[in-house]
Design a protein around this nucleic acid. Structure first.
Lengths: 164, 164
DNA sequence: GAACGATTACTCGGATACATGGTGTCCGAGTGACGCCGG
DNA sequence: CCGGCGTCACTCGGACACCATGTATCCGAGTAATCGTTC
């Protein structure tokens, strides 16, 4: 089992968009180039983020993507679920019920202990992602990156950015 | 992303094996029949559990599988990792470094905030699975299942079990 | 000079192929139990 | 009656196809800026 590559792409793109001035946009081409990704495939994931209400798209020339909400209001879990789906990691097929000596019975409506334990672990994972916002990521990035590099990035992005 | 079906199979089979008397074994055929699974495919997963040192196999007639350690000493995480692999859910490709303005620099050896956050969430998931042992699952099963059903299961298994 | 309109270039969006890994199956090697034979 | 041996049936183990999901791509629809024309 592994998470989709697109999750990493989406998180990084949202992080970059979070660094833009208010209402400014950045097109797919710039986001793909900045991260060295396939432009067309990245578009697919940006579309998923749009459908999830995390980012929004502006069509036409000078169009592009921008955040729909403040970085503090976007959790990592939202981005992960938008791209990777909201279905649980562990889907219990309740195979315990397939025993040849199983009769139709109400007691089997109770989920098995394995199901409960897996759900608890999954909740811990989701909770950890829910407590981390995009703003936290941006903050960490700014603190862990050199001043020169920060400015170079800002300039590179500013050159492709579209202010309204 | 979803966990392999085999994880559920493995957990249930280990749970059943945990209920056997000491040193007794149960063949693949019985385990598959009990859960309504494909015998040949289940064998593949049991093989993975064997390689992981969780269960052990006895060849020849009257052979089969049995636990290699006490149920209290086997965590759910071990079973999950044995079947699904020990690789991390989120493999950070550090695409932040692919930026066209990236130069070779030591600062990039520091993992990005996204990587750190994902690793923390994954650790929470693993920790939750590590604290749950097979003995806990067995205990929960015995408490949540009716007496009649428990006895029927025990008899069915006893009929296919091989005592040494 | 200003306003209107057609053109145009750029954007996103969904429908379409390819590849990798999980799913499922098969047959062969190995081993201990069983039955037979001889002492 | 007891011990040894050959046969056998049953077990696990690894190598081989199949399918679903993620990966990657393309082309079409839509939109706003731009430029030219006209008043």
């Amino acid at each position: 089992m592994k998470l989709s590559e697109g999750v990493e792409w989406g998180l990084h793109c949202v992080t970059v968009l979070a660094g833009l001035p208010p209402r400014a946009t950045l097109p797919t081409k710039a986001l793909a180039e900045y991260h060295g990704l396939s432009e067309t495939y990245l578009a697919k994931h940006l579309q998923a983020l749009t459908n999830a209400g995390i980012i929004e798209s502006l069509p036409g020339p000078k169009g592009g993507y921008r955040l729909r909400r403040a970085p503090e209001e976007i959790t990592m879990l939202e981005v992960v679920e938008a791209i990777d789906g909201r279905e649980p990691l562990f889907r219990c097929a309740e195979i315990r019920q397939r025993s040849p000596l199983t009769q139709e019975s109400a007691q089997y409506r109770v989920p098995c202990g394995i199901h409960i334990a897996m759900a608890r672990a999954e909740k811990a994972w989701r909770d950890a992602l829910r407590t981390q916002t995009i703003a936290d990521i941006v903050s960490h990035y700014q603190q862990s990156t050199g001043e020169q590099r920060l400015q170079e990035s800002a300039e590179w992005i500013a050159g492709r950015m579209r202010q309204i």
